[in-house]
Design a protein around this nucleic acid. Sequence first.
RNA 1: GGGGACGUAGCUCAGUUGGUUAGAGCGCUGCCCUGUCACGGCAGAGGUCGCGGGUUCGAGCCCCGUCGUCCCCGCCA
Length: 626
Amino acid sequence: MTLDFLGTLQRTHLCGDLRSTHSGETITLMGWVNRRRDHGNLIFLDLRDRSGITQVVLDKEVSPDAHAKAEAARPEYVIAVTGVLRKRGEGLVNPNMPTGEVELVAHSLLLLNDAKTPPFSPAEDAIGNEEVRLKYRYIDLRRTEMQHNFALRSRVAMAIRNYLVSQGFLEIETPFMTRSTPEGARDYLVPSRVHPGHFYALPQSPQIFKQILMVSGFDRYFQIARCFRDEDLRADRQPEFTQIDLEISFPQMSTIFAVAEGFLRAAFSAAGIDLGTEPFIQMTYDQAITRYGIDKPDMRLPAIVDLSATLTPELRDTLKIDPTLPVLGFTIPSVGELSGTARKALLSEIRAFFGDSGLDLLDLTRLRTNETFAPLAEAISAKLSQELQAFHQASHNQQPTTNNPASDLAVVITPKPGTPALWNYDPQWIYKRVGALRLDLAKKFADKHKLFDQTHTAADFKFLWVTDFPMYEWNEETKTWDAAHHPFTSPHEEDIQSGALVNDKGSVRALAYDIVLNGTELGSGSIRIHRKDVQSEIFRSLGMTDEEAKARFGFFLDALEYGTPPHGGIALGLDRIVMILAGAQSLREVIAFPKTAKAIDLMVDAPTTVSDQQLRELSLRTVTRS
RNA sequence: GGGGACGUAGCUCAGUUGGUUAGAGCGCUGCCCUGUCACGGCAGAGGUCGCGGGUUCGAGCCCCGUCGUCCCCGCCA
């Protein structure tokens, strides 16, 4: 088979755009053969480009030459077809495709390129084997779903750019090759050839640069910035990822919230979702922990309820519940009535989840059958259903899927006597354990409560600001207080004035905030420290001597001394936003060339070893560790 | 670093208690077919059962190790 040259031929339309209004026009399409249906003297080719598919008809009587070439064509061959668009006759219309009312009657066909039989067909639905998909990513990306994901990503990014520019932001690029800062995530390092033994680091975020841009008077900066972190991966974590990074001079927290909400509305609107004008919900970190047991609450589910008040000391005693610790409960709606065996299995599953931590499940069903405890069971049920009603109202749920309270799964967790109030110096560990169970069970019963189902409306997306994060976190391993956010985050001004920075680090609140969507952290930011004296104080409070601080951040401390305005900002993960909008379960669905869980690029096969010559130039030697 | 799931034809998967020549669907190749659109019909090719070792008369199946993919914990200021 000989391939044809393109010559001067130009394409006139895209496959997916053709409608009956085009009928009679002479049209040239170019694209990939999606499918071929050979009926002998009549051949149908489904021709695909990024816009969609059009059926091409090759009739031996119309053009023997084109028909012969179509006979040789195979899936994924690249062809050019010129012909006349025809409205399909009665009974020949395909209502399942947008172009199903027309077909292109080919007069000539060029075979522009052939194709080996692909390992999987882009014409099929997604295949399960991600290894193969990633190795042949160029074929995978031809699939309609992937084409949609990246068109969506492009639209979303553009909407955000346009919005931020309209709000007076300047897009400024910051270096990829910069300085290693050993705190936080591990850095990817780049050896310097010119300076043997010295390394650049790829940025974990443009944090210090954007703060210096505020010192430089740019007032409002943004960047759709690639960031790099050498940590283990997850479905929602890749070693290189993209952040919408911004910084504002002279802001209040509300200024930053308004900007972030503004560009999210623009982004969602670009995806066909109208988020309305209501400001996003806000809650403090402490509220998030006590109400949801996590710092990134999934607001698609009912909250945790503190049931301590329903229990008298006597009841606690007879039921063997710790007298001082909270009793917590929550509801998973519409689970349906569980059979005796299913209930028992769930019980032991929950008890296994808690292990020997001291937490236990209170069996409401059994409680109810006992005369002494029936009133308690009633009181607990009443409190839980009160919360459930508030939840349905707040989330504007249409009728809950069932109205039968017995079908809602009530889970009540009690601490046994002697359960430690602190685990790993964390007074909130009980809330966090119960919060984790809440998410586990919600995932388990997702097909029952359907609260995670997509309706492709604003109701699918529950946004939330979490504010007032703690400034410090106790690190039991090193016996030190670490910065919970990063060391440039400003504490509340009252907490500086009260001296808590020195006396009571655990109580210091940071002017730091996260934005959360459906239980996923989309981004976080803070009001920064703009005074040298406060910044030095924070470094000292983190156990850094002035000399160490100077060695690591001297340039930054210097910059702070030359007229730094109050400033603050935020960074949101673009990949995660697009992932949620696309309804995808993994970032790999919205990153064109992602890495595997072991941080390998299966297509280009990276990382690799390099030649001795390259190592010599960099003054590097590799050693094998046992 | 730890836990779990998976690995059999190009793809999706089946494979009984360890027992003859490892199967199916899709895809692929050839021939036939003028209204299909997941076209159809006939014929055919295609396998180091992830890899290495062990147990056994005999291993896709049992045991040990190892590699890879996915999910989770740790980690991600």
